[in-house]
Write a protein that binds this DNA or RNA. Structure first.
Length: 259
DNA sequence: CGAACGACCTGTTCGC
DNA sequence: TGCGAACAGGTCGTTC
C-alpha cells in the first residue's frame, strides 16, 4: 500500500517522535517479518526514506530497513495500549510505543551494519530527472507504466501514483517507453513531482485502510483523477475513465485524452 | 538478456 | 444469506 508519499509521511512524523530516542524494548511478534537482532538499548539517530523503504539509522553506524509492501503500517501508540490484530513488531520508547501492523505479512525488516548504500534508481524529486529517464527508457520495449513501477529505474512510484502521473502527463499507460519523446518524458517527470508533492502535503491516499503514524487518514483520495474512478467522467475531456489490466495490475486511465 | 508471470499472504468485496 | 472467485497499495524468483 504505502508508496512514496505514504512512506515520506511516516518518515517525517517519525522524526518528530523517535529521532534521537533510545529503544527501550524491541519485540518481534511475527518472525516472518525478519530478525533484526537485539535492538533494545539502541538509539535511533535519524530516519530516512529510500524509495518505498524506511531506514532507521542507529548508533554505531548501523541501520534497520523497514519495507511495508502492501498492507504494512506504523502506529505511534500509548505505552500500555493493547495490541491490535496483525501487530508484527513493537518498539517501546519512554514516551510511547511504535507498532508495525501488517495483515498480509509481506512487510520486511532487516538489520545492516554500516551506512545505507546509494541506489542507482532515479528519485522523482531529483533535479533533471527527465534527462536521466530518457537514456534508460529509449532502448527498452515495455509499457511506460511498467517502467515507472520498476523500482530499479525509478524509486517510490506505485500503482496509484503511476496511474495519476500518466493521466496528468496525458500519456497512455500502454505506450512503449522507447516511443516517448523527450518532451513527453519531461511531462511525465514534471507530473511526478507535482503529484507526489501534493500527495505528501495530503499525508497520502486512503483508498481503503492507509493511516498515518497517528492513525489519521490521508486526504489525497479526494484529489485522484483516475485511480478508483472507473466509469466516471474524465475531468479534462469528459470521456469515461476505464479500468484495464496491465501486467496483472489494475490500471485506470482516460482512453480519450491519454495518447 | 529483458520482459512477463506466478507466488508470497490475508482480508474484503463481488457475483451467482 | 451463503459461498467461492476475484481483487488489493509490492516485490521476488522463475519462466519464456
Amino acid at each position: 500500500m504505502p508508496e512514496l508519499p505514504e512512506v515520506e509521511t511516516l518518515c517525517r512524523q517519525l522524526r518528530g517522535v523517535v529521532a534521537g530516542k533510545v529503544i527501550l524494548k524491541f519485540d518481534v511478534l511475527d518472525p516472518r517479518i525478519g530478525d533484526p537482532g537485539e535492538l533494545g538499548g539502541r538509539r535511533i539517530v535519524s530516519i530516512q526514506r529510500q524509495g518505498k523503504a524506511l531506514l532507521l539509522l542507529l548508533d554505531q553506524g548501523a541501520f534497520v530497513a523497514l519495507h511495508l509492501r502492501m498492507t504494512g503500517t506504523l502506529l505511534w501508540r500509548d505505552i500500555a495500549s493493547p495490541l491490535l490484530p496483525h501487530t508484527r513488531f513493537t518498539a517501546s520508547f519512554a514516551t510511547g510505543r511504535l507498532d508495525c501492523i501488517d495483515p498480509r505479512r509481506f512487510a520486511t525488516l532487516t538489520y545492516r551494519d554500516g551506512a545505507p548504500a546509494d541506489t542507482s534508481a532515479i528519485d522523482p524529486f531529483e533535479r533533471d530527472s527527465a534527462d536521466r529517464l530518457l537514456p534508460l527508457a529509449c532502448n527498452r520495449r515495455l509499457p511506460v507504466k511498467s517502467f515507472l513501477l520498476d523500482q530499479r529505474f525509478v524509486g517510490g512510484i506505485g500503482n496509484i501514483y503511476a496511474c495519476e502521473i500518466l493521466y496528468a502527463a496525458a500519456v497512455s499507460p500502454w505506450r512503449m517507453t522507447s516511443s516517448l519523446s523527450p518532451l513527453e518524458w519531461r511531462f511525465v517527470a514534471e507530473a511526478a513531482v507535482s503529484i507526489l508533492s501534493r500527495a505528501i502535503a495530503c499525508r497520502g491516499t486512503t483508498v481503503s485502510d492507509w493511516r498515518d503514524l497517528f492513525g489519521q487518514k490521508g486526504a489525497y483520495q479526494h484529489e485522484l483523477s483516475v485511480y478508483a474512478r472507473e466509469g466516471e467522467q474524465c475531468f479534462r475531456c469528459h470521456g469515461i475513465i476505464q479500468r484495464v489490466r496491465l501486467h496483472g495490475r489494475g490500471t485506470y486511465f482516460c482512453p480519450f485524452c491519454q495518447k
